[in-house]
Design a protein around this nucleic acid. Sequence first.
DNA 1: CGAGCCCTTGACGTGCATCAACGTGCGTGG
DNA 2: CCACGCACGTTGATGCACGTCAAGGGCTCG
Lengths: 209, 209
Amino acid sequence: MHRRYAKGTVLMDGGAKLDSFRILVSGVIKLLHVEPDGRQHVAGLLFPGDYLCPTQPPIARLVAETATPVELCCFPQRVFEILLRKNAMLEPAILGHALNELDDVRGWARVLAHRPALERVAMFLVMLEQRTRIASEEARREVLHLPLARGELADYLGTTIETVSRQLTQLRDRGIVETKGRSLIRIRDWDALQSIAAPLPGADGNVDR
Amino acid sequence: MHRRYAKGTVLMDGGAKLDSFRILVSGVIKLLHVEPDGRQHVAGLLFPGDYLCPTQPPIARLVAETATPVELCCFPQRVFEILLRKNAMLEPAILGHALNELDDVRGWARVLAHRPALERVAMFLVMLEQRTRIASEEARREVLHLPLARGELADYLGTTIETVSRQLTQLRDRGIVETKGRSLIRIRDWDALQSIAAPLPGADGNVDR
DNA sequence: CGAGCCCTTGACGTGCATCAACGTGCGTGG
DNA sequence: CCACGCACGTTGATGCACGTCAAGGGCTCG
């Protein structure tokens, strides 16, 4: 049951219950947190391998919208339930996935609280490449497509459009990346990028604890 | 199966698998994220009603340590499994709890990224009172016991010891709280505190979006 | 090819981290 | 029970990263 959706399609809307279990095959999905007054924030991203799951509660108040053209693999509710019954390992696996994500989000919260903007941008680029690559043995791609506009990216990184822009400019001036158009970016120096994304503690002269 | 633990006891250590399902009856538990180099950060807190659950993976690399004297209610692994089998609603409930927490942590990440330190301190006090109160109909308590030392509190709030101290001083100077010793705090003006914790969007003169 | 929005760049102010020194609460031992 | 000492907490001074306001190009769409 393959399906394709154009960029900007709403796949799930907080309240509504999903009619199927959907695995993301290609593309990126934004998870938006919508406030009562209508403002919305990018709360998370889904990459290939992640899924939308018809569980209660349906990830309260979160809206899933395609950030790029997207390819989904849908299991109808009936099939999903049959799978659940036949395969005893499936439900623990889903719970495990949720717990892993919980850990990731906790880690991200720490990053938002403590790490400077440049690191966050670098981390995003590294993560984007890792999670977009389908086969894990595949070589690192050089050219990435940014699935988010600057405003959304800024939102996701917990900063502002201007700051994101400045950090990208800085990476460009340092010769670490090249930009082509608004959403294409070519990484010229992966090592440098990763050392910015995950600086060794104490390497910047700080004393521990 | 009731059990009591003194303050500062390690209840769960990332790798080790729990031998029982444990519900927190009273007290507060710190969830610590320990880095390879030994430094640790407060990643979350458990309050009465929350539980430690023997699921795989065991909330990778998270250490649970009592922040106050703690009272647990333990179900042995066998009993827990029997409950799981008998009550089909139990596992979805656990998943639901995890998804709710996921949402909470996402919200907290947004707070860490965007809201000023004073708000975070106020939010913490409000949350502390709400989650520590057992019976929800019970009246708001005036005197709270801070389960975390300043350093841990600063860590949890994504700021520094000095900043936390300054915000508390500010709340005291404004007549909103009184402090008694290091860990006792008396809330004199709940309304003021809550309006700081959850400021109305736009009420501070900002323009939306 | 043109209009509009998105992005970039600049100038400025400020909240908070950092460094440093002092004061206080709390546990310990006499 | 009181006094001592250390760790924890408070307060002050300073610098910087980043948010905000403002103006200028450059993509991308129709």
